[in-house]
């Protein structure tokens, strides 16, 4: 019996890294969105920075999701 410790460590490192990165980026997007919403309801102003940050963050997360679908569907590779 031989255990693939390297593979196991790889799974641990990659999945922790991807999870933390995705959730942090998504949280930053939510932060931007929340700022923009607060500004709109406060004085009706458009918080361009907030919206821009949110858009970029959510786009990055969408890319991660697309890569996930790519990994799941065997026809793609």
């Amino acid at each position: 019996m031989q255990l693939d410790w390297t593979g196991l460590a790889e799974v641990a490192a990659v999945s922790t890294g991807v999870t933390v990165a995705t959730v942090v980026v998504f949280a930053l997007g939510v932060l931007g969105l929340a700022r923009a919403e607060a500004a709109r309801e406060g004085d009706g102003a458009t918080d361009a920075v907030g919206l821009g940050v949110a858009g970029l963050c959510f786009l990055a997360c969408a890319a991660v999701v697309a890569y996930g679908i790519y990994l799941i569907v065997p026809q793609f590779h």
Partner: peptide, 16 residues
Amino acid sequence: EASSTAVILTSAHLGF
């Protein structure tokens, strides 16, 4: 859910 997806996909990719 993000962590579950990440673990499931990386381990499937590496054959666990």
